[in-house]
Design a protein around this nucleic acid. Structure first.
Lengths: 205, 205
DNA sequence: GTCTATACGTTGATAGAC
DNA sequence: GTCTATCAACGTATAGAC
């Protein structure tokens, strides 16, 4: 294959993945149609099937990309020693991801909601490993009396739920805010608020 | 219409609503088929359409029932004066609902995820009113120095997200727990843990 | 690699006998 | 009120020209 064709393929795949993420997020797996994805990507329907043999394979590619980006965002955790700083950076990172990539979060949420079949492999391996490692770190913090003794898993679930809520439930949030989406400044305030709440929950004030 | 027929109708509607809630939760609006709902309810497909003219109307009936039950569960909030007790009871109530009615929570989550069109009416009225009232109550608690000064809305979103996570993300939770669903005792522990975290977040220890 | 036309399965909804 | 048979619409996937 020529270099030019490689580039064409990569561009098209990225373009299709982006379009598919939006459509899957908005309509769910079954509600999304290849035609809608094609229109969103500005391509005829048949081209989608040329790059991704089936709708299912395209869907899995979208989910894998989401997990990759999440993993990347979660790395801030390792860059700071102090519990307060590490948690603050982690919450900020998750909140910013919810803000910049709501569709990514929603595709994942939708998949888990409906059985998690397409992501069970990722959950058993990468996610499970990450959670185990972080749990150990928290146990250490507890042992060192740096944070209150808490169930680390319950704590992380709370962080995941609370931060992803701003992406997954954004329509509800807008309606409850009288139809007004949060401005960047307001969203920064929400990050600050949530950070204080979560830090407070383990005694870090 | 005779009394007997009234009873038949009510029984069938309840039966169909229950089946529809499960199927919509598992497959989403578009993924759920009237045939699947019919099978789940033990009826031929045509009977579903006899009781609910369209799939859309059935869907809305399911969502309305979910909101009714949520409102009912939220009433514990008014029954206790002390912040610590009221919040503890509210969290417990929400967690028990997540445990006993995961499908109900999931249908709502799925609907909001995909645009909240079918529930925007409820959000603008009942939910908005409830949230406003509770926000005022929290402002009073803050003024009385009973809890730390926090953004009440951000606080409630955290509670909603954290408690509903146990229903909406139950598949993920099971996988991360090595494929083992929580026992009743384990779940009680999670309720206790989450309650402590949330109380801690507003300085109630 | 792109695109039009189409085959084939599925599904929401109804007609009409019981 | 129940159920079987049926239809029209839609959606995935492919064939085949360019």
């Amino acid at each position: 294959m020529s270099v030019q064709k490689e580039i064409t393929r990569e561009n098209n795949e990225r373009n299709i993945l982006k379009a598919a993420e939006e459509i899957f997020a908005q309509y769910g797996f079954r509600g999304a149609t290849t035609d809608l994805i094609a229109k969103q990507a500005g391509l005829p329907k048949a081209n989608i099937h040329y790059y991704y043999k089936t709708k299912e394979l395209l869907y899995r590619a979208v989910l894998e990309r989401v997990l990759d980006e999440w993993s990347e965002a979660a790395k801030v955790f390792e860059q700071y020693e102090e519990p307060k700083v590490a948690l603050t950076k982690y919450i900020e990172s998750k909140m910013k991801f919810s803000r910049s990539r709501p569709y990514a979060s929603k595709v994942w949420a939708n998949e888990v909601l409906h059985g998690a079949d397409a992501v069970s492999g990722f959950l058993k391996t990468s996610v499970k490993t990450w959670l185990n490692d972080r749990n150990q770190l928290l146990q250490k913090w507890i042992y060192d009396k740096k944070i209150k003794p808490v169930d680390p898993t319950a704590f992380f679930y709370m962080i995941w739920a609370a931060t992803q809520h701003y992406a997954d439930f954004d329509h509800q949030i807008v309606i409850l805010n009288d139809g007004l989406p949060y401005s960047d400044e307001e969203y920064q305030q929400k990050i600050k608020q949530l950070t204080e709440l979560i830090l407070g929950s383990v005694g870090l004030d």
